[in-house]
Design a protein around this nucleic acid. Structure first.
Lengths: 155, 155
DNA sequence: CCATCTGGTTTAATATTGCAACCACACAAG
DNA sequence: CTTGTGTGGTTGCAATATTAAACCAGATGG
């Protein structure tokens, strides 16, 4: 019945999904990264029901991904803009995009590419490196339990 | 009322979400990356309803993320293992993890860290580079329409 | 001031999810 | 061969979520 919450999970992936892992949130965030700010813009772009948009925007604000600011055009309405926490989702968006570019069954249907603003050339694939600069594949990594933070004695 | 499909969308992010953007799929994939293979392992680990797990495993197989193979222990059952397409989701997992590590309200609740197998040290943050090797932030990038593929004349 | 736009809320129908019960098969012990 | 147990599901029902559509109040625009 009720969708199980992942908020208390110790897995950081589950915790992230708990914040924006529903059907629409990431698409709203994507639109926000493309510069959309207004309720109506999101609704027109995504074509989702307005009540759903209302609740999604509200929870994204609650969770610190978006904030509301006075509308840029001076009207009495408000704009929804990304917080730093929201802008921090950019690498996730890039990773999702690159996965589709590499594995989608119909890549010819993909309409856009991500380029660097300076040269207009496609960006490189995201890459994972070790502290000492070696390129790492999944097989070169492993999980370790998080070390307990050193407890500082309160004077 | 049916959940709107994003399959035909031209946005690669939407297309990716259409494949694994529901509540459980990414967690199943995460478990598969941790080496879990059996129905019962997933069910015990995730605590989701068995009927939901059944349908999720089926659609992940349909979509080429998982395949079934004869069980490793020689029993008559089957294992679910990642395909290359599924293993390709690794950077997305890393990006999700690193976002939580950076922005989670309660990072002390995160139980694990990702380290390189060789040295046991935490990995670097995922980074995006231009073709010519410059480190790129979101602001250094932009979207371009995908160039039409050059149509090759069929001999 | 009248009409329309914006940003929602409400309502009712439909879909999805979750839980619990059930079930068939494989396997093992007796 | 017969009973018991674990695995990997299916089925049914109740609870919840999503949707489209109608509605509405305040802002805006002519």
């Amino acid at each position: 019945m009720k969708r199980t919450s992942l908020a208390g999970d110790e897995c950081p992936i589950a915790r992230a999904l708990d914040v924006f892992g529903d059907w629409w949130s990431l698409l709203i965030i994507r639109d926000a990264m493309l510069g959309r700010r207004r309720f109506g813009e999101f609704q027109a772009s995504l074509g989702l029901a307005k009540n759903i948009l209302t609740t999604r925007l509200r929870t994204l604000v609650e969770r610190g991904i978006l904030t509301t600011v006075p509308a840029a055009d001076g009207s009495a309405y408000q704009d929804y803009v990304l917080t730093p926490k929201g802008r921090g989702l950019f690498p996730i968006m890039v990773a999702l995009r690159q996965w589709s570019e590499e594995f989608d069954e119909h890549p010819e249907e993909i309409g856009t590419i991500l380029v660097d603003r300076d040269k207009g050339k496609p960006v490189r694939k995201l890459a994972l490196y070790s502290q000492d600069g070696r390129l790492l594949s999944a097989a070169d990594t492993m999980m370790k339990p998080r070390p307990k933070p050193r407890r500082r004695v309160v004077a």
